[in-house]
């Protein structure tokens, strides 16, 4: 198949950047989207041009490193699918495809399609954990946890930290990411001990990083590769109000 690509090229963080057009032909529809970009890069390198930088690693949808806007949709047209799991059969011969990085002031562009999502790490560092040191753990069965509870916790914990939620949010809010971690931990008995401190610190960090307000448009869940529920955000709100209400 034949494609016209319009790819965002930007030399470094300070460069203004622009869309550049590339043409590719003889593509196999069974290729993955990233393999299509590999093919383009092979051609660019041989021509002596700079290859397109893009984030990727595991290419099986779990590491959370890949992610671009494809035709204005986070991770492309398929629902709940990472960019690496998208294949060219989802496009038509002769299509023009716009490829841009996940954009947000909070995710500076390193180069081309590659972005810096370290703000997510800082949110986690500010409280996205259970404070237990190695060696302190009691027996794993000491506290039974109901099947439904642990499954719900898993649903929230499944977040891969790709940033599609922020990229697709009209407000650039990190509410889904932050709330998924808060829900995961607060659902478990082990994580309840420090719930108040956790929510306050994580929300504070989220704000300090400059992420926007959640206005509940629910676009994040639709684009989320793991289908993380927006109800996590509601739970985060609950935890926040609870912590504030019980504050001394």
């Amino acid at each position: 198949m034949k494609l016209t690509l319009k790819i965002w090229r930007q030399k470094n963080q300070t460069d203004t950047g622009s869309l550049q057009e590339y043409k590719l032909d003889q593509l196999n529809p069974h290729m993955s989207f990233l393999e299509m970009l590999d093919t383009l890069n092979e051609q660019l390198i041989i021509k002596g041009d700079d290859p397109v930088a893009f984030d990727h690693d595991c290419r099986e949808g779990i590491c959370g490193q890949c992610g671009v806007m494809i035709n204005g949709m986070a991770h492309g047209p398929l629902p709940h699918t990472t960019t690496c799991q998208l294949h060219m059969r989802s496009f038509n011969d002769g299509d023009t495809i716009y490829i841009e990085p996940f954009r947000s002031e909070i995710f500076p562009i390193r180069k081309d399609l590659s972005i810096d999502r370290s703000a997510f790490d800082r949110i986690i560092a500010s409280g996205g954990y259970i404070s237990t040191n190695t060696g302190q753990a009691p027996d794993a069965l000491a506290i039974p946890i109901a099947h439904e509870v642990v499954e719900a916790a898993f649903d929230s914990a499944a977040c891969i930290g790709c940033g599609a939620c922020v990229a697709t949010c009209k407000n650039g809010s990190a509410a889904l990411f932050t709330s998924a971690k808060i829900s995961h931990l607060v659902l478990l008995p082990q994580g309840k001990e420090e719930r108040a401190a956790r929510i306050k610190n994580m929300v504070q960090t989220m704000d300090k990083e400059g992420f926007g307000h959640c206005t509940n448009t629910e676009a994040c869940q639709v684009e989320c590769p793991q289908n993380i529920s927006v109800l996590n955000i509601a739970r985060m709100n609950y935890e926040f109000i609870r912590a504030k209400a019980l504050e001394k």
Partner: peptide, 16 residues
């Protein structure tokens, strides 16, 4: 034990 204490959601039976 360590993983459970950290909040790793291992699969559980209905009794917990």
């Amino acid at each position: 034990d360590q993983a459970v204490a950290q909040g790793v959601p291992f699969g559980r039976e209905y009794g917990g």
